[in-house]
Structures are given as structure tokens and as C-alpha cells.
Amino acid sequence: MKYVGEARVTPQGGPQEESATGERSTRNRVARSILDHGPSTVADLAGRLGLTQAAVRRHLDALVTDDVVAARDQRVYGARTRGRPAKVFALTECGRDAFDQSYDELASEALRWIARAAGGGAAGEAAVAAFARDRIESLAETYRAAVEAAPPDKRTEALAKALTADGYAATARSAPGRQRGEQLCQHHCPVVHVAEQFPQLCEAETEIFSRLLGTHVQRLATIAHGDGVCTTYIPNVPAAPEGPDGTEPREPPRAPHQASPKTAPRTARDPSASTAGRNPA
């Protein structure tokens, strides 16, 4: 589960790693018990899980720190007894998100319905593609602001940071080998299970990357296709050829009053002169 912290492992592993694994497992059980039975007191959890109340409190403190559970006063129905009501611990929104959800299946069913409603076949695929483009357009507004605020040589990096904020764990790096350009790598895809069935989501994303960065891009790999990372190649705009001293080459010096070859007027004797609009007689 995502709320569990990383284990502190000694160089040889061993008892410390095993202890950390056991701690994570018990915290999972505490959180799962609250999910299954609703807001619970320390005594409730200790009785269900066969733990001491001191052990339950220790695990609850860690779960509260990780924003998985939150403490609140227990509701009392009927006459109240003396003393303060016991605290109960309930899952937060973050805690619920750590458990399996049905969002992926719901999204897949919705896209299948869109395809059927459009008539299936090519028309259905086009309808799903239109949805995918509309979805990414709404997400792209934030990305566009980040990219346009960055200097040209930092725009891929700016896009990667914006994608990371949306859960894609993206990075930018120089393209390997002799390729001139960069690679945008997304190490996580929040919609991977839906994209496996509907590649239009990946295609729309690639299109928006091209528009945001102002150049043609090439998708090399996707997690939805079984690759470990979504990888997009972004070529650099070719630089002007350099002269021997590392600067742009200059035109050779011209004699006085010699017209520049770029601006010299063309005559009828010039075989490369344009004949557009002339009478061919």
C-alpha cells in the first residue's frame, strides 16, 4: 500500500529488514480492519486483531502521521456516561485511495459505451479519440503555462515537472547515442489499465506533447504496451552550421558596388529566374 514508508535496510538485510516488513504488514491489517468495520476505537482494533492496545496505538500514530487515518470523537447515542468519549479512528481520503478502487473499470465501461453509442467500428474509435483529445486538452492548460514560462532549452524539463505534479513521475534527459534531442520519460501512468484497452489516450497525449513543445515528437515506448517506461523522443531544432572558429560562417567579402547574391535582380538571361505569370509565347 502506498502509505507505507520505505524500510530501513542494513547492508546485509537481516533482522532489521524483517522487522520493518512485519511493521508494514501489521499497519496494513490495522487500516484494513478500519476499512472493513468502519471507524474504530483502540479497544475495538486490539480485540479484532489480537494485539495489545499499546501496539495498536503505536501503529495508529504512524498511520495518522502518514495521513491514512484520522482521530475524531466517538458519537454517543442516548445518555452520555461520565468522562470524555473514546476516540475513534477513521480512514482519510488518502487512506481509502490506498486500497483497490473500481475507477479503472468504470472508465473502461464508459469508453466502451461511447464507442457503441457512436455506432461501433471506425466511428466508435473516432468517438473515443475525440474524447481522449478533449480530456488531454483540459489537462494541457497547466502544462502549457509551465512550458511557455521556460526558456526553449528547458521546456522539456518544465513539461516533465508539470506531468510529475499530475502523478506521471516524469523526467527529461538527453537522448542516448548520436541522436540530437531529448527523451521525456514517464515512469508511472495513472490511467495505464484503461490505456491498455484504448490506445487513443496515448495517441492524444503524444499529439499534445508535440503542440506544447512546438516540434514533431516520436513515441518510442508506453507502459500500456508492456514497456517499463513511457518514452517520447523530442528532436532538437537543427543548429546553424558552424564555421572553423565555432561561429556561424560569413559570406565572402564582395567588391565595392557588387550586389549581394541574395538581393541581385534576376534577368531574362538568368536560367533560374522565375517565369511565373509570363506569357509563354
Rank of each mutant, 00 (worst) to 15 (best):
residue 101 Q to R: 12
residue 273 A to T: 14
residue 192 V to E: 15
residue 229 V to F: 05
residue 55 A to M: 08
residue 274 S to F: 02
residue 275 T to V: 03
residue 243 G to T: 10
residue 244 P to V: 12
residue 116 R to Y: 06
residue 177 G to H: 11
residue 162 A to T: 07
residue 256 P to G: 06
residue 101 Q to M: 02
residue 193 H to E: 15
residue 162 A to N: 10
residue 160 A to K: 07
residue 232 T to S: 06
residue 56 V to S: 05
residue 232 T to I: 15
residue 237 V to Q: 14
residue 116 R to D: 13
residue 27 R to F: 00
residue 263 T to A: 11
residue 279 N to I: 07
residue 145 A to C: 01
residue 15 P to Q: 03
residue 243 G to V: 09
residue 199 P to E: 08
residue 65 T to H: 10
residue 169 A to N: 14
residue 223 I to W: 09
residue 163 L to G: 01
residue 87 K to D: 15
residue 128 V to T: 10
residue 5 G to Y: 00
residue 111 L to H: 07
residue 93 E to N: 05
residue 129 A to H: 12
residue 100 D to L: 06
residue 165 A to Q: 15
residue 144 R to D: 15
residue 265 P to A: 10
residue 160 A to D: 08
residue 270 D to Q: 06
residue 256 P to I: 04
residue 207 E to P: 01
residue 229 V to L: 05
residue 100 D to G: 05
residue 45 L to E: 02
residue 103 Y to L: 09
residue 19 S to G: 06
residue 221 A to T: 13
residue 62 A to N: 08
residue 28 N to L: 11
residue 49 L to K: 08
residue 42 V to F: 04
residue 48 R to L: 11
residue 176 P to F: 02
residue 164 T to N: 02
residue 277 G to H: 10
residue 86 A to N: 13
residue 174 S to V: 08
residue 94 C to A: 12
residue 208 I to T: 14
residue 105 E to V: 09
residue 42 V to K: 11
residue 150 A to P: 03
residue 216 H to T: 12
residue 224 A to W: 08
residue 271 P to W: 09
residue 215 T to V: 10
residue 154 K to I: 00
residue 185 C to G: 00
residue 157 E to S: 10
residue 153 D to Q: 12
residue 93 E to A: 11
residue 204 A to N: 04
residue 92 T to E: 06
residue 104 D to W: 05
residue 238 P to G: 07
residue 257 H to E: 14
residue 245 D to I: 06
residue 203 E to N: 13
residue 173 R to D: 08
residue 204 A to C: 07
residue 2 K to P: 02
residue 259 A to R: 14
residue 42 V to E: 15
residue 108 S to H: 09
residue 177 G to C: 08
residue 266 R to I: 00
residue 270 D to Y: 04
residue 139 L to M: 13
residue 118 A to R: 06
residue 101 Q to F: 02
residue 229 V to I: 14
residue 114 I to W: 07
residue 169 A to V: 13
residue 249 P to F: 12
residue 75 R to A: 14
residue 101 Q to Y: 02
residue 271 P to N: 04
residue 62 A to F: 07
residue 230 C to K: 02
residue 149 A to K: 11
residue 90 A to D: 15
residue 185 C to E: 13
residue 146 A to R: 12
residue 56 V to D: 09
residue 166 D to V: 01
residue 249 P to Q: 10
residue 219 R to F: 00
residue 34 I to R: 01
residue 100 D to P: 01
residue 51 L to M: 15
residue 256 P to Y: 06
residue 159 L to P: 05
residue 76 V to N: 06
residue 36 D to T: 10
residue 59 H to N: 14
residue 79 A to M: 04
residue 244 P to Q: 15
residue 235 P to D: 11
residue 107 A to Q: 14
residue 22 G to Q: 09
